[in-house]
Design a protein around this nucleic acid. Structure first.
Lengths: 133, 133
DNA sequence: GCTCTATATTCCAATCAAGGAATATGATCT
DNA sequence: AGATCATATTCCTTGATTGGAATATAGAGC
């Protein structure tokens, strides 16, 4: 993966906020909407941007689209390094800390098949709806 | 320094190449022109961009402008982290390696008052011209 | 003073990115 | 099949970014 492309993905505040949240685990669009307080189009478009450039993967789960960072093995060295760097840096800046706090408070997770999480009954409802496959 | 601003500086290939070279030490515009093989306007404008955003400092030395990274003490944690990350990543990509190779081969340096370097007599001529101050 | 050299700035055109409104898609439920 | 929910896409406008040509500035040397 070319280095510039990574930075092009990182050079927008909304995208940084999305990635920052994804560093904690998979999430679906409505989670981002809730945490960032930004309109659906905006979120969806930025996720699309990240997706086409390989910084994020997307899998459908019923009505929802679950976004996640590529699994560790699938990350280029550049991507891995920059994600680590982002995580460190974001920990020091207010916006990102606030987002993480809000995420934690809401207990939102789209962990793959993690029965835990998403307990608060938001979207991406747990096992009940998707045991068939 | 806001994180996005750093990434905005890093999201252009020319700027990445400039910074990659600066990680080896101060240089002046004509050095960049030689190594990158890009026209003067382009180099100068991108250096200006980096300068106004605090990623680079500039000091005049006679006819030449010497650009450098802010000294270690003056770097925000975010900047420090990202420069380190860039240095690592750039070491793995062809463009940047080629630039560094060319830089080394030409032995170009604008080290502050380093009597060594710039031996090949390019620009930024050593002590002879600037002993007066 | 004039000239030369190194670098910066202005002006312009072309391309690109961001955001929003409206609409479309795809899945689930009844 | 129709309704509904979550998300994606299209279209459009606005503003930013890039790059080049030409011109301006600042310093050195005569």
């Amino acid at each position: 993966m070319r280095l510039v492309q990574i930075y092009q993905c990182l050079c927008d505040e909304t995208r940084l906020r999305l990635l920052n949240l994804l560093l904690r685990g998979p999430l679906c669009v409505c989670h981002f909407q809730t945490v960032l307080g930004e309109p659906q189009v905006k979120i969806s478009k930025h996720l699309g941007y990240l997706r086409t450039r390989g910084l994020v993967t997307a899998t459908r789960r019923g009505n929802w689209m679950v976004y996640a960072l590529p699994e560790a093995a699938a990350r280029s060295p550049e991507l891995a390094a920059n994600l680590a760097c982002l995580q460190d840096c974001a920990a020091e800046q207010a916006v990102f800390r606030r987002d993480l706090a809000r995420l934690a408070r809401l207990d939102l997770t789209c962990g793959p098949i993690q029965a835990g999480g998403a307990a608060s009954g938001g979207c991406c409802a747990p096992a009940k709806t998707f045991p068939k496959k």
